[in-house]
Amino acid sequence: MSRPLPDLDIADRWRLLLGEAGTGSLGAIGPQAFAMDRALAWLYGRDDGKDGPGGLAPEDRLDRHGGLGPSALSVPDWINEIHTLFPKETIERLERDAIERYGIDEVVTNPEVLARATPNVALLQAVLRTKHLMNPAVLAMARTLVAQVVRELMEKMARRVEQAFSGRRQPQRTSARGSASQFAARETLRRNLRHYDARSGRLVVREPRFRVDSRRVMEPWQLLILVDQSGSMLGSVIHAAVTAACLSGLPGIKTHLIAFDTEVVDLTGQSDDPVDLLMNVQLGGGTLIGKAVGYAADLIEVPRRAIVVVISDFYEGAEEHLLIGHVRALTAQGTTVLGLAALDERADPVYDRELAARLVDAGAHVGAMTPGQLAGWLSEKLG
């Protein structure tokens, strides 16, 4: 299941209901309720008393005074924020009101506005969260925007992967054979000093030496990346898709990309096209991590040369012992299991720590890594 929303105390619930009128007797509002009030005020605080787009009907109108000050949320910011603050049913109502009652259509109905938007990860997340609301024309424009953001992410990630996996030249290693460009003059001179002819003043080279470029030779490995696609993990889905695309191009690595909620979807065939992959991901629903790990276990060819990376907040929707059993069996056969609490640029460690501790006891490694850190970690394991 998705990460549970924090419970609000009774006082904060009344503050949300009363707005500015409740601050005198109830005191300051808590941070969670503050964020929720800001998101609601951004939408319903624009009510001008008119029916239809731009205003609610009188019977539906909320009396919100905006006592917390003006909000600087943009449309993408607001979309992303409500998806982290409210349950699914509330999100659907808020999005419907924004589009149908207030005419806020910058992201989901107006291709011209979308074309003027600044491509960034926040806008990409908003697009992926609302793509089911888009008409075909807007969806085509959104796909172009997604491609631009993904291309920028790919360029950054590709450099990190190259740095992590490229070997370093070791000049001290030489060979008796090589090309002219590899000729090691200093080593050749040192090895042939004993052949120096003092009478003629010449050095006879009998043992030429050439540099050997020592680059890491990758033995075949199997990398299985499992991504929780519940709504709270959207940032991880984006960066996992980009990471998998970069890793799939490395020699000696067979990369699998598997998305899961209550069902398991093998996206390996799309891993080299992260744009197409992201536009087809369905966010939300429950979470069955054990089911996904069991699916990955059946794909493993050589256990000691396989790594299973599980990207999730580890809020398991099924019996936890099933997941623990799969992980224990994998590590017992020599497979490396890595649990990642986050895979966006911030890698904020928000996850079920109790279940994570049980996974560690079963032999898994659990932590929070950025995409660059993951590439470095994999480089050490695969080298």
Score class of each variant (00 low, 15 high):
Gly285Ser: 09
Ser230Met: 08
Arg209Gln: 14
Glu219Leu: 13
Leu234Met: 13
Leu257Thr: 04
Met218Phe: 15
Gln270Asp: 11
Ala241Met: 04
Leu250Ala: 02
Ala241Arg: 02
His256Ala: 10
Thr243Glu: 09
Asp272Ser: 14
Gln282Asn: 14
Gly235Ala: 10
His256Glu: 10
Arg216Met: 10
Ala241Pro: 07
Pro220Met: 10
Gln222Arg: 09
Leu226Pro: 06
Arg215Ile: 07
Ala245Glu: 11
Asp261Asn: 15
Leu224Met: 08
Val264Gln: 04
Phe210Thr: 00
Glu219Pro: 08
Leu247Arg: 02
Gln282Arg: 14
Gln222Lys: 08
Val265Leu: 08
Val227Phe: 05
Val227Asn: 04
Ile253His: 12
Met233Ile: 12
Pro251Lys: 09
Met279Cys: 14
Val264Gly: 00
Asp266Thr: 03
Leu283Ile: 05
Ala244Ser: 12
Phe210Trp: 07
Arg209Met: 10
Gly284Trp: 06
Pro251Trp: 07
Leu257Asn: 00
Gln282Asp: 12
Ile225Asn: 05
Val237Ser: 03
Ser232Cys: 13
Leu226Phe: 00
Ile225Glu: 05
Ile238Gln: 02
Leu203Ala: 10
Gly285Asn: 07
Ser214Trp: 09
Gly235Thr: 13
Pro220Leu: 12
Ile253Pro: 10
Leu267Glu: 02
Met279Leu: 12
Pro251Glu: 13
Thr243Pro: 07
Asp213Gly: 00
Thr262Pro: 01
Val212Thr: 01
His256Cys: 08
Leu257Cys: 03
Ile258Ser: 05
Ala244Lys: 09
Asp261Pro: 00
Ser230Leu: 00
Ala244Val: 01
Asn280Val: 04
Val281Tyr: 02
Asp228Ile: 09
Val265Thr: 14
Ala244Glu: 02
Arg206Thr: 06
Thr255Trp: 09
His256Thr: 06
Thr268Asn: 03
Val265Arg: 15
Ala240Met: 04
Val227Met: 02
Val217Thr: 11
Gly284Leu: 03
Met218Val: 15
Pro251Cys: 01
Leu223Pro: 10
Val205His: 04
Val204Ile: 06
Thr243Ser: 13
Pro274Gln: 06
Leu278Cys: 01
Phe210Glu: 01
Val204His: 00
Asp266Val: 03
Gly252Val: 02
Ala241Asn: 08
Val281Cys: 05
Thr268Asp: 04
Leu250Asp: 03
Leu277Arg: 06
Glu263Gln: 13
Gln282Tyr: 10
Lys254Arg: 13
Thr255Ala: 14
Met233Gln: 14
Val275Ala: 09
Val275Arg: 08
Asn280His: 11
His256Ser: 13
Ser271Thr: 15
Asp228Gly: 09
